[in-house]
Amino acid sequence: MMPIIMLIISLAFIFLIVITLSKVLGSRVWTAKVNQWIVFGYLALGLISIGILSFSTEAVKKYSIEERKAMYEDETKLWNSLLSGQKNSYYERYLQKEWEIELASDQIRIVPHLATDIKAGVLVEKRDDPNSNVIYAKTYVIPYQYRGNDFTKQASLDYFKFENNNLIVQQVNNQEFTFYEIYPGMQMLDQINDYNIEHDAYYSFFTGRTILFLNVPSHVNIIDESGYVYLVR
């Protein structure tokens, strides 16, 4: 309440000064020339603001509804492609991390840290390599989107940790993001056109899903206690 009162007092004070100056100086103050310079100055200030904001704000990829439809199909294809074992270099763009797991024995346990629903899946492919106990792992992350905004960079989506011959599928802490977005248009037009509803309609069940692809020597025994292993082949 106090800041508003202060603001009103300040504005009243400015208003009083302007009125007094206008009365004293008469029509010499509000000439067309002065008005013109005030408008130009204000527009120049706007331009400077755009310049500063373009450097000081973070750009987030915004997908159109058409792009989201395509991505929705693409994500489904990626999931099916990994499940069916097809190799498709196109999907390598979803690759986030490539890492190796060195096993101390011929056995690996995959355990959940907490038994809750985690948006992750493990796919296992066996290879003939009797002399090695190394598992080649690839972490794929399907971009995390909300209403077409890509927040993959901000979200922590790594659910997998290797410790003492155990691959832990861990629950990531609840993540709450608050963003302040500059929207260079009118929200009400989007509402009239139902763009927001359309954006909500294209909610992908795969968004933010993390897929761990493991290339395991065939002699290594996998004990799945997690329920997150979708396929072993």
Binding site: D117, N149, Q175, F177, G185, M186, Q187, G208
Partner: peptide, 23 residues
């Protein structure tokens, strides 16, 4: 300033976006 907001998310993610729009 004509700002609006929307919120939502899934599982362990909650996203709140405050908009500064031209409205």
């Amino acid at each position: 300033n004509g700002s609006g907001s929307s919120g939502g998310g899934s599982n362990q993610f909650s996203v709140y976006i405050h908009f500064y729009s031209l409205d």
